[in-house]
Simulated assay, not measured.
Amino acid sequence: MPEVLDLTFFAFAIPAVIFAGISKGGFGSGAAFAATPLLALILEPGAAIGLMLPLLMMMDVTALKPYWGKWDAPSAKALLLGTVPGVAIGAALYSFAEPDIFRLLIGLIAVGFVVFQVARARGWITPAPKPMSAGLGGFWGLVAGFTSFISHAGGPPAAVFLLSRRLDKTTFQATTVICFWAINLLKFIPYFALGIFTWQTAKADLFLIPFAIIGVWIGVHLHHRLSERVFFAFTYLFLILTGAKLIWEGLT
């Protein structure tokens, strides 16, 4: 964290936090992790993820009320059972792994998923007609827990599983909200133990909390005014943009 929270910091941090809130509140959380690479342009990666976690937790709490009880319990359970070992692996590897490797993997997952969905929609490939099983949900939950710990990028792996379940947009959104509320709570203790949080990040979070809440409110508002087709088009667009950004950063 910079010693002084100056205009440059807020010029990057405020749009990043609002954007993450919009994604959390209305677009399945898939694009929320784009805030971390944006902040990493002016902060060390550890400071960027440490800054974002309390804000993401605030967004989770804000988004819980409008979506309470609307999630798909079997899908949420399948994902969450896998996130526990995923977060544990992330905590074990975080202190010595090369961050660019994780950026590259996360970007490939995001872009690869969208390519798969487009190819399936156009009939270029014909996947099995059945939704993914709970076992595969556990696998994608493990990936989501791991990538979420490293850079708050659990949205794309979770979307791979949830979109295969053919949920309507509100059920999809509610399921991501409850899952990432639980995942972010799970991440808090190892983040604290690893020293990712500092007094300076806590101070910055106090200034940014209102923008996190505003972003979620905007997202909820947009969620109820967009058709399901437009909603998923936005989801794919966000995944492509954020995935391409992470691939570029990982390679360069």
Rank of each mutant, 00 (worst) to 15 (best):
Q117W: 04
V118H: 08
V118G: 03
V118K: 03
A119P: 06
A119H: 07
A121T: 10
A121G: 12
R122F: 13
R122N: 10
G123R: 08
W124V: 08
W124D: 07
I125L: 15
I125M: 13
I125K: 10
I125N: 14
I125R: 10
T126Y: 10
P129Y: 08
P129K: 09
K130E: 15
K130D: 15
K130S: 15
P131E: 02
M132E: 04
S133K: 10
S133I: 14
S133H: 11
A134H: 10
A134N: 04
A134R: 08
L136R: 03
G137Q: 04
G137H: 08
G138P: 00
F139G: 12
W140F: 14
G141E: 02
G141S: 08
L142W: 02
L142P: 01
L142A: 12
V143W: 01
V143R: 00
A144W: 04
A144Y: 04
A144P: 06
A144C: 13
G145C: 04
F146A: 03
F146Q: 07
F146S: 02
T147C: 15
T147W: 02
S148V: 01
F149L: 12
S151V: 11
S151Y: 05
S151E: 12
H152S: 08
H152F: 06
A153K: 03
A153T: 03
P156M: 02
P156T: 03
P157R: 01
P157W: 04
P157N: 04
A158Q: 07
A159L: 05
V160Y: 00
V160T: 01
F161E: 01
L162D: 00
L162F: 08
L162P: 00
L163E: 09
L163T: 09
S164H: 14
R166H: 12
D168I: 11
D168G: 12
D168N: 15
T171I: 12
Q173N: 14
A174W: 01
T175R: 02
V177R: 00
I178V: 14
I178H: 06
C179Q: 04
C179L: 14
C179M: 06
F180I: 09
N184H: 07
K187V: 01
K187A: 05
F188H: 08
I189G: 09
I189H: 07
P190H: 06
Y191C: 13
Y191R: 09
Y191L: 06
F192K: 11
F192A: 15
A193E: 15
G195R: 06
G195Q: 09
I196F: 05
I196V: 13
F197G: 05
W199H: 10
W199F: 08
T201K: 02
A202G: 15
